[in-house]
Amino acid sequence: MSIPTSMTAPNNAMMTTDFTLRRDAFGRLVLTDAAGNLHEGVAPVRAFPIGAPDDGLALVNTDGKEVLWIDSVDDLPAEAAALVREELAGREFMPEISRILDVTSFATPCTWSVETNRGNADFVLRGEEDIRRIGPDALLISDTHGIHFLIRNQYTLDKHSKKILDRFL
Rank of each mutant, 00 (worst) to 15 (best):
residue 123 F to R: 09
residue 169 L to H: 08
residue 1 M to H: 12
residue 158 D to T: 07
residue 18 D to N: 15
residue 18 D to T: 12
residue 169 L to I: 10
residue 160 H to C: 08
residue 86 E to A: 15
residue 42 V to H: 00
residue 78 A to D: 15
residue 107 A to I: 07
residue 6 S to D: 14
residue 1 M to K: 12
residue 82 A to N: 10
residue 16 T to E: 14
residue 158 D to C: 03
residue 125 L to D: 01
residue 76 L to I: 11
residue 11 N to M: 07
residue 24 D to S: 05
residue 70 I to V: 14
residue 160 H to T: 13
residue 65 K to D: 13
residue 29 L to P: 01
residue 13 A to S: 09
residue 54 D to A: 15
residue 72 S to R: 13
residue 57 L to Y: 06
residue 150 L to I: 06
residue 112 W to N: 08
residue 27 G to Y: 00
residue 60 V to Q: 11
residue 125 L to K: 02
residue 24 D to C: 03
residue 58 A to H: 10
residue 114 V to Q: 04
residue 155 Y to R: 15
residue 56 G to I: 08
residue 111 T to Y: 00
residue 24 D to R: 05
residue 144 T to E: 10
residue 168 F to W: 02
residue 64 G to P: 05
residue 146 G to D: 06
residue 43 A to Q: 14
residue 112 W to K: 09
residue 140 L to E: 14
residue 73 V to F: 02
residue 114 V to M: 06
residue 16 T to F: 04
residue 108 T to M: 03
residue 141 I to D: 03
residue 129 E to W: 02
residue 19 F to K: 05
residue 55 D to L: 14
residue 96 E to V: 09
residue 78 A to S: 15
residue 120 N to W: 00
residue 98 S to W: 00
residue 105 S to P: 03
residue 121 A to P: 02
residue 76 L to E: 12
residue 91 R to Y: 01
residue 6 S to M: 11
residue 166 D to F: 03
residue 52 A to T: 15
residue 36 G to Y: 04
residue 61 N to E: 07
residue 116 T to W: 01
residue 88 L to E: 05
residue 86 E to L: 06
residue 43 A to T: 14
residue 42 V to C: 01
residue 37 N to D: 13
residue 128 E to F: 00
residue 50 I to M: 09
residue 56 G to C: 07
residue 95 P to K: 02
residue 150 L to P: 01
residue 51 G to H: 09
residue 145 H to V: 10
residue 52 A to Y: 13
residue 131 I to V: 12
residue 169 L to T: 09
residue 148 H to V: 12
